[in-house]
Amino acid sequence: MQFEPQSKINDRRYDLDWLRVIAFGLLIFYHIGMLYVSWDWHVKSQYANSDLEPLMQIVNPWRLALLFFISGIAVRFASDKAVSKLKFAKVRLKHLGLPILLGMTVVVAPQAYLELRQANEVSSGFTTFWPEYLNLSQAFSIITPTWNHLWYIVYLLVYILMVTPLFPVLRSVSNGSAGKIISWVSNNTISLIFLMPLPFVFFELTLSSRFPVTHALIDDWANHAHRFTIFLMGYFVAKHAGFWAAIVKSWPYALATAICICAVRLYLMLSHPEIYPSLFEMPLRPLAMFLLTVYAWSSIVALLGISQRWLNQSSRTLSYLTNAVFFYYIMHQTIIIIAGYMLTPYGLNPFIEFSLVLLLTLAGCCLGYEILRRLPVGALFFGIRQ
């Protein structure tokens, strides 16, 4: 089947390329931060406490939503240029499926090993552990083999395979009813900022308490509702000129909204920690979830507007990072966990330890990318375009 001709709104969106790179880069800092907060994670530094948690909470509501939103936009542009639905699906299976396979069998295995080592659940060497990790008998307290941080790629691939057979219908809906709804919501700044995120408020109030986030794919229904919806929103607005014009007009107001909500939230978290959790219980829960969701969406609107205004241009740096950032995403968490696990027994100053983990992560990702992008098999299994 041949697709319809390309839309005129089909120029390369360098602003979104930059935003994707920034979002993945932010993820590296976030996952290093997970070594040092009290939240449950794979391994922990001896300095883990709650001090960094307010800073982490600034990006928590929108960091992954932004990635799925940009992914939806990318799928719209790429699918409109595809020769056929089958060809499109095959390419995505190769570029996402092979990294998932390698990631689960090789890349993520050291994460599971060191998590179990720190929990004193295993004492053998990695070469002894690895066959047990690949064994489906589930001999450990965590599921093995696992995808850990690669869940984003797994979910994205599933969403792409779900929508690929529906591309003609989705394009028709995008140009029809969905386009009209987006035009109406984008008609003024207030509706763009406060009405567009309402589906996510509904999900929070109806699904999140019943289906806690698991990243296990088959039972993660609240998470799917959020991620698949924002993915579809990205698809539908990708070529909607009215939406992007509204972003240009509205982003300063969205930024002000995000800053105000964030400031109040941080104040309550830091000054009244005994009160803050109760805000997310009835009867205040609907209002709290509405404001938190508006904060997440207004942050995304602000970032889209800022990137359109100042980042919509190509460069050699962007070309390099656009291809490299996916490899960095695949490898960064494994390097972080190895570096954090190896460094924390030395009792280094926490700032020195953090800096060394960051340096080793960036150096490991950079070196690995430079080596593997020159090897056809390595590039193939890490999704590196040659």
Score class of each variant (00 low, 15 high):
residue 3 F to I: 00
residue 5 P to E: 01
residue 6 Q to T: 07
residue 12 R to P: 03
residue 12 R to F: 02
residue 17 D to Q: 00
residue 21 V to L: 03
residue 23 A to L: 00
residue 26 L to M: 14
residue 27 L to H: 02
residue 27 L to K: 03
residue 34 M to D: 05
residue 49 N to S: 06
residue 54 P to Y: 11
residue 60 N to I: 08
residue 62 W to I: 12
residue 66 L to P: 02
residue 70 I to E: 07
residue 75 V to I: 15
residue 78 A to D: 06
residue 90 K to D: 00
residue 91 V to Y: 09
residue 97 G to M: 08
residue 98 L to V: 04
residue 107 V to S: 13
residue 108 V to C: 06
residue 108 V to Y: 04
residue 117 R to I: 04
residue 120 N to Y: 05
residue 122 V to W: 02
residue 123 S to N: 13
residue 131 P to I: 01
residue 131 P to W: 05
residue 134 L to N: 04
residue 157 L to F: 10
residue 157 L to V: 06
residue 159 Y to N: 07
residue 159 Y to W: 12
residue 162 M to N: 09
residue 163 V to R: 11
residue 164 T to R: 03
residue 166 L to W: 12
residue 170 L to D: 08
residue 172 S to K: 09
residue 184 W to G: 01
residue 186 S to T: 03
residue 187 N to E: 05
residue 189 T to Q: 10
residue 198 L to G: 08
residue 203 F to S: 07
residue 204 E to I: 00
residue 223 N to F: 13
residue 235 Y to G: 06
residue 236 F to T: 04
residue 237 V to S: 09
residue 242 G to D: 01
residue 250 S to L: 06
residue 255 L to W: 04
residue 255 L to P: 00
residue 259 I to F: 13
residue 267 Y to V: 12
residue 273 P to W: 12
residue 276 Y to M: 10
residue 277 P to K: 04
residue 277 P to R: 04
residue 279 L to S: 10
residue 289 M to E: 12
residue 301 V to M: 14
residue 303 L to V: 03
residue 309 R to K: 14
residue 309 R to V: 01
residue 328 Y to I: 03
residue 330 I to H: 05
residue 348 L to W: 07
residue 351 F to Y: 15
residue 355 S to L: 08
residue 358 L to R: 04
residue 360 L to V: 14
residue 368 G to W: 01
residue 372 L to Y: 15
residue 380 L to M: 15
residue 383 G to T: 03
